[in-house]
Computed example of a mutant assay.
Amino acid sequence: MYGLKKQMNRITGSQALLLIISILVAVIIFSIASPGFLAFSSFTTIIETVAIIMILSFGQTFMLTAGEWDISVGSLLSVPTVVIAVLLQSQFSMLSASIIGFLITVLLCLISAVLTVIVKIPSFIATLGVNGIAMGLSRIIANNNPIKVEDKALLNIFGGQINFGPYMIPVVIMWIAIMFFAAIILMNRTQIGRNIQCVGDNRNAAILYGINVNKTIIITFIINAVFIFFAAMIMVSRSTFATPGEGESYTLSAIVAAIIGGTSIQGGKGSIKGAFLGAFFVGCISYGLFRLSVNAWTGGIIAGIVIIIVLSISSLNQKRKFEMERS
């Protein structure tokens, strides 16, 4: 009987299941209210809309799992895009410009990491400082003006489309799949992923296990930088402009997607699958409200209320699960 109760509790308390049910409910409601919502094009539009948030949420999942915060990701998005745009205008090749843009992104994330593990500044504060640096740096490099990106190879690699029978599949879906499976393997199938979870769960225990905590946190920041860079490439390929400050609004959305997906803000527990579902849920709500011609301000209020409800249900489920496991 106890085993059955525990199994049922695991199922009903599953964050992924809760999100899947929430997505299905949203799809049913929006399909009734807007008959064309179930079209294949709606699915690809939602994915394209939340692609940047989704990829950023993978990086945020690693950060939160390690017990760290990064609130600079939105500002960091603009840095590699303006760097690459300026270098392309200076006749650099796409590959060399991309490598330089990537290295600068990693360097900025390493500044946050060093401030966190060596100077012992809380990551929330360290990344707040780097957020300001990134904001100013992108504006200085671009002279606070959008820069047109005309490199066809870059735009096609990150923003093109693939002919798949009668459908045109956005390349961004392929990139999301690559990032998704790479993140799952890294989090669940590698030693560094297990180290990140252990460090976030209990740092004293991690030290006793022989884990180099500082090294693990630094690696976590680097992993986050990789996701930031690819999200930035998708962002610039969609707009074809490198615009200073363009990504600053994505930070909160990426963190919310990770938390909705079941990643603990206390650290030690993270779900890449949950982050994917969380971002898709947010996108589903936003796109559905857009199809219903709900204005942005009202839509923001409705989306916020729905997210709070989902998080509240999740919190109650986790509390009930904890109490039942203790009984």
Rank of each mutant, 00 (worst) to 15 (best):
E325W: 00
S138Y: 05
T49Y: 14
I169D: 08
F158V: 15
S42W: 01
F62E: 03
R320I: 13
R189C: 11
I255K: 03
I47N: 03
V171G: 12
G3S: 12
G101K: 07
I147F: 07
G200H: 07
G129E: 01
I162C: 12
F227G: 11
S41K: 15
L64R: 07
W297E: 14
I100G: 02
N195A: 10
S237K: 13
N295A: 08
I255D: 08
N212T: 09
I52E: 12
A182Q: 02
G261W: 11
I46T: 13
T251W: 07
T81Q: 15
L186P: 01
G261S: 08
R139A: 12
D70Y: 04
F322Y: 10
V82I: 14
K321T: 10
S286I: 01
I169G: 03
P166Y: 02
Q161R: 13
S42R: 01
F158A: 13
V306A: 12
L18H: 01
F43K: 04
S78M: 05
K148I: 15
G247E: 03
N156A: 03
V282T: 11
A134N: 00
L137R: 05
V50R: 15
I52A: 02
L76D: 00
L17G: 15
N188Q: 09
L4R: 02
I307P: 03
M174S: 09
W297L: 14
A39F: 08
M1F: 12
D151I: 09
A231N: 00
V73P: 00
I52D: 02
R194N: 14
W69E: 04
T105Y: 04
Q15Y: 11
L108S: 03
V79Y: 00
A153S: 07
S123I: 02
E68D: 07
F290G: 01
A26V: 05
I313Y: 02
I21T: 10
L87C: 06
G267E: 11
R326W: 08
I176W: 10
Q89P: 00
I234T: 04
L154E: 06
I192V: 11
M8A: 12
I223N: 01
S34Y: 15
V199H: 04
T45A: 15
L56C: 02
I125E: 04
F30W: 12
L128W: 04
L56E: 04
T105W: 00
I176H: 03
Q318E: 13
K319Y: 10
S286D: 10
V79H: 04
I29A: 15
A85M: 05
T12R: 14
S75M: 04
G74A: 13
E325F: 07
L115W: 05
I133F: 10
T240R: 14
Q161V: 12
I222E: 03
P166R: 02
G262E: 08
I285H: 11
E325M: 14
Q197Y: 07
E248I: 14
F58D: 05
L186D: 05
A33C: 08
G283Y: 01
S327G: 15
A303I: 09
F62R: 09
I20P: 01
F43H: 03
S112R: 06
S327Y: 11
S90F: 05
